[in-house]
Simulated scan of single mutants.
Amino acid sequence: MANELAGKVAVVTGGASGIGRGIVERFVAEGARVVIADRDGERGSDLAAELGSNALFRTADVADQEQVGALVDVAVEHFGGLHIMVNNAGISGTMHNRFLDDDLADFDKIMAVNVLGVMAGTRDAARHMASHGGGSIINLTSIGGIQAGGGVMTYRASKSAVIQFTKSAAIELAHYEVRVNAIAPGNIPTPLLQSASTETESAELKRFEERIRETMRADRPLQREGTPDDVAEAALYLAGDRSRYVTGVVLPVDGGTVAGKAIRRRAKRTEDQTN
């Protein structure tokens, strides 16, 4: 559908790269005006310049509540309102071979970005939406918040918290016609995964990431690799009027990973092959 978000104003945190960039590009293509928020000023400014007058970049660290609130103010002042809030900004944690070796040194930082940032973004967007006819809030979690596993325990805990918060906020904010939903990406190649390792040489980091990707591919029912565009398509659905009766859902975009491990079957031999 062309111009599905015509007349809408959105804020996308972590919008300068990866999944956030994919969402920004799709929203603008569908007619929305978008405030791009990110700590990466160079990438964010370049993206806004590329997209033209319907995009505006602001440097922001979502771990700072005042900076999150300022994004809502910018959207209202520059574009005249706020209809869609995408709380996408997130960080991973240091990968440890064993939880027993985890010093939890990154706990406060991960929780501040992944949980506090989402809660503040939801609250501040809803404060405006509640008195302006409602709106759509989309929080990015992860299949790591749905499925148990090892490796990055604080990250998993933070993404689980986003899921519970999203459902709770959806119940409370429904009175104001504010819908709150979550997307749980999985197996989407983005720069985020690189932050899950300790500092290593680039070649070792590449091997580390490929091992994780290979495990993901083996478990994924759909064989096609996921992309930020796939997540952006889900965000478009939750942002627009097609989902006006949808709130409190967690939508995995993961090639079927959380549904169950892949079943690989041998292709049937043709009659010619058997004879």
Rank of each mutant, 00 (worst) to 15 (best):
Ser131Leu: 13
Pro185Glu: 10
Asp46Tyr: 03
Ala37Ile: 04
Ser243Tyr: 10
Val115Lys: 06
Val113Ser: 11
Met111Thr: 04
Ala16Arg: 13
Leu193Ser: 14
Gly151Glu: 02
Arg224Val: 06
Tyr245Asp: 05
Gln273Leu: 10
Leu116Val: 06
Ile212Ala: 15
Glu172Phe: 07
Val258Gln: 06
Ala218Tyr: 12
Ser160Met: 05
Asp106Ile: 02
Val162Lys: 10
Ala105Asn: 07
Asp106Tyr: 07
Leu47Tyr: 04
Glu271Pro: 12
Arg220Ile: 05
Arg39Thr: 11
Ser202Ile: 03
Ile138Gly: 06
Lys268Glu: 03
Glu209Ala: 12
Gly248Pro: 09
Pro221Thr: 08
Glu42Cys: 01
Gln223Glu: 12
Gly144Ser: 15
Arg26His: 07
Ala157Asp: 06
Leu238Asp: 04
Gly7His: 10
Asn54Gln: 15
Ala262Glu: 13
Ser197Lys: 06
Ala10Thr: 05
Ala203Met: 11
Ala234Val: 05
Ala267Phe: 06
Met119Leu: 15
Gln65Met: 02
Glu4Gly: 14
Gly134Lys: 08
Gly150Thr: 13
Val62Leu: 02
Val9Glu: 06
Lys206Glu: 14
Val250Ser: 07
Gly248Arg: 14
Gly22Ser: 08
Gly260Ser: 10
Arg98Thr: 10
Leu236Tyr: 00
Arg207Cys: 09
Gly240Gln: 05
Ala48Ile: 06
Val246Thr: 12
Met119Phe: 08
Phe99Ala: 10
Ser142Phe: 14
Arg179Leu: 08
Arg123Val: 02
Gly151Arg: 11
Lys8Phe: 04
Gly149Gln: 09
Asn275Ala: 14
Gly31Glu: 06
Asn3Arg: 14
Gly14Met: 08
Asn97Lys: 07
Pro252Ala: 04
Arg179Trp: 07
Pro185Gly: 13
Met119Lys: 14
Thr227Val: 12
Lys159Ser: 09
